[in-house]
Design a protein around this nucleic acid. Structure first.
Lengths: 247, 247
DNA sequence: TTCGATTTGTACGTATGTATA
DNA sequence: ATATACATACGTACAAATCGA
């Protein structure tokens, strides 16, 4: 907003200075009050630079998740609040998000038998190359994709779990139908990375978005591993909360 | 490597097609065997596009953390393996990473009293605006910055903890010198976001990098909250592992 | 040490494509 | 259909950093 003067040849690229200006203008409420940024040409004129230079700045802020550009419409300020996904000994998707969303749903994308990849076999305590059943699912809260998961089960022990899932639309109930009354999460590893092309499509993310990846092993009451899963959460929609049962 | 033909006007931008080609060539070991990519001009010629188009592709892969460009030197393939940072009831920095790094160190950047921000006061069970002491630290493993943390303590209960930290170079020992024999982590919230300018500087990250942010409350044996902290981990260097004590 | 070649970074210009209103 | 606005892609020029002769 301010007719701030950009410093050329100051060692900081013009596009970066502009990005910083726009970011702080948004933070202070000076810009984007109505949720949208002025057109690129207008910004270019205001800052006295070429439109491309403005685009470089906007591009950087898009990567940061501050802005979102839509072809033909304009450039918009992004704001979001995150759901909290609890990770506890007995972690179940809909139970965890239940109070935060009116509706939750897990959809099966694909399933079938395959030879267990190395880390899967190890996590499930199977011989390398054993047959496992893989389920690909996407979970939504109020219609918005929140996470996608790939789960593996021992094909011998859990034959037909894919059909059971289709019937019950829930991992917990599908496991129950296979005789698993209860299960607990034995270990969880969390990392963060840029969303892959597949993540972007399935979770309806924008390019450059971030996913929180959890890799977890669930074990039956006796302690035997029954499920290994890798879940990717849309990082701008979810935060994870680790809950201590005994606390 | 292959003289793959790019499809113009296919609905997928040329720079994106090129980025996909380079990414898969690196994954398959066809490109970047020596850890470096050919010069931009050479790639432009190979793909039959303008240098800028190649730059757009490289820029995207840089954001993903696949490549790193250095002015005057070239563009290099990035490879990394992550340290595993355990989160348990008794989480302590150096103990957790000890086996994975030859040396670990936590450095105090800044400290001092301040009025507690709202979430801090709430987490510590203090009245809004109470005096707290804030510590800003950066932790390194083998000389590489791994995380930066901001910690808050009740200024009354822990007067002088900043000096104690300077002396002992450890939160655990500084707390011990204030009479806290033992403490446990009551809750942890994890989210992921793009690194801020400050994160990039202090953790020596590249633009567009990701940080894993944890917000945690530590409580003394009796259950009273004594420390609230927000830690930012360089996501390309660290993964978090949640550990169940009783498992 | 200096110089020049190489390579990436920045900034401008122009044209055209595509989506939206 | 037209105007608007963002997306892609080409071209050119020069700056800045690196490296070897």
């Amino acid at each position: 907003m301010t007719g701030a003067v950009l410093e050329r040849k100051s060692g900081v690229a013009l596009w970066r200075q502009i990005a910083d200006l726009i970011r702080s203008d948004i933070a202070s409420g000076v810009a984007g009050q109505d949720g949208r940024l002025p057109p690129e040409m207008q910004l270019a004129k205001r800052y006295g630079v070429n439109r491309h230079t403005v685009r470089a700045a906007i591009g950087a802020l898009e990567q940061e998740g501050v802005l979102r550009s839509e072809q033909g419409r304009g450039t918009f300020v992004r704001r979001r609040k995150r759901l909290t996904y609890p990770i506890r000994k007995r972690t179940r998707f809909s139970a965890g998000l239940g109070s935060q969303a009116a509706s939750t749903r897990t959809r099966l994308l694909e399933s079938g038998p395959e030879a267990a990849p190395e880390p899967v076999a190890e996590a499930l305590g199977l011989a390398a190359g054993s047959q496992v059943i893989r389920l690909e699912t996407v979970s939504e809260a109020d219609g918005v994709p929140v996470s996608r998961a790939t789960s593996w089960f021992d094909a011998q022990r859990f034959a037909g779990i894919d059909r059971a899932f289709e019937e019950h639309a829930s991992i917990t109930r599908a496991l129950a139908s296979c005789g698993v009354e209860d299960y607990v999460r034995a270990s969880t590893i969390i990392e963060a990375r840029h969303a892959s092309a597949e993540d972007i499509e399935l979770l309806r993310l924008s390019a450059g978005a971030i996913v929180l990846v959890t890799r977890a092993v669930n074990t039956a009451a006796e302690g035997r591993p029954i499920q290994y899963s890798e879940t990717r959460f849309a990082a701008d929609r979810v935060e994870l909360r680790i809950e201590n049962e005994d606390a």
